[in-house]
Design a protein around this nucleic acid. Structure first.
Lengths: 143, 143
DNA sequence: ATATTATCAGAATAAAAATTCCGATTTATG
DNA sequence: CATAAATCGGAATTTTTATTCTGATAATAT
């Protein structure tokens, strides 16, 4: 089981992080990305296509084609990828699965989860990929 | 999509919370629980069986049988149900899905997620069902 | 005793998510 | 122009999770 994001979303995040530490508009094939991230080519390829549709990643077809970051790392945040792939529902839904959980009809952990949820949202939406670059670099070389 | 727990786990949490606000050892049939929580009888029944195996819930077979809390609400915490159903992996795994995420090889959000993860764990393991009783009561009557 | 009403175990089915495959199209290059 | 190397779109497949069903067994009440 994944932690909070779907597997597809995790791969999307990894792919974008990977591209964000590379030279701008430097193109990588799906095969290259898959090898560096150690994930199946077909899968990462499909995920990058989704991100291409939504404009976060750019792609070039044909020979010497591949994928690249469509925007500057300083204008992308992790939440952008999450939004496109998993959507933002998890930031609204009740963590215990109760229907209609709200400030009016809170579940037993509504308040506490509310804080956590907001912190999680901040974690994903405060820093840009540019600001995460150093850390990303360290992680990716260790794969 | 659920927030962090599987649907099965959500139902398990709801069932135990439901039983925790009732008089000790008062027995409820799967049908009663399903009606009060507004969830399918067959499903909640199956989930309560899992919790029965693990000793959190007790059951009585045959006529006038049903389910009841096997322990006192003051000795049960939400984390106990999570552990039995989903396991505690989510408190170890990398939120971005990177392999081998650790203090030595941290992912870009390792530290921040670490805090959140610990807070989430606290949320589930600090208070007992007894301490949550009031809040639980309020939520369940509103269903 | 017998009928009734439960849980229980495990199989069966359905739905969702993950993963792969394929054929079409695109583009660079010799 | 032909070939090679990519992405693309959509279908197909596999795997996982959710959900329901079924028949067996157990316990109670009459």
């Amino acid at each position: 089981m994944t932690v909070i994001f779907s597997k597809t979303c995790e791969l999307g995040l990894q792919a974008v992080l990977f591209l964000s530490i590379k030279k701008e508009k430097r193109i990588f094939t799906a095969t290259e990305v898959s090898q560096e991230l150690k994930v199946p080519k077909e899968y990462i390829s499909k995920v990058m296509q989704i991100l291409t549709e939504s404009g976060i990643i750019g792609s070039k077809k044909g020979k010497n084609g591949g994928f690249y970051l469509a925007k500057s790392p300083s204008s992308i945040k992790l939440i952008d990828i999450v939004e496109v792939i998993d959507g933002l529902e998890i930031f609204n839904n009740c963590v215990l699965g109760f229907p209609g959980c709200s400030n009016e009809k809170p579940c037993p952990v509504h308040e506490k989860w509310g804080k956590l949820r907001d912190d999680a949202y901040k974690m994903l939406s405060t820093e840009t990929l540019e600001q995460l670059k150093e850390k990303t670099l360290h992680k990716l070389v260790s794969l």
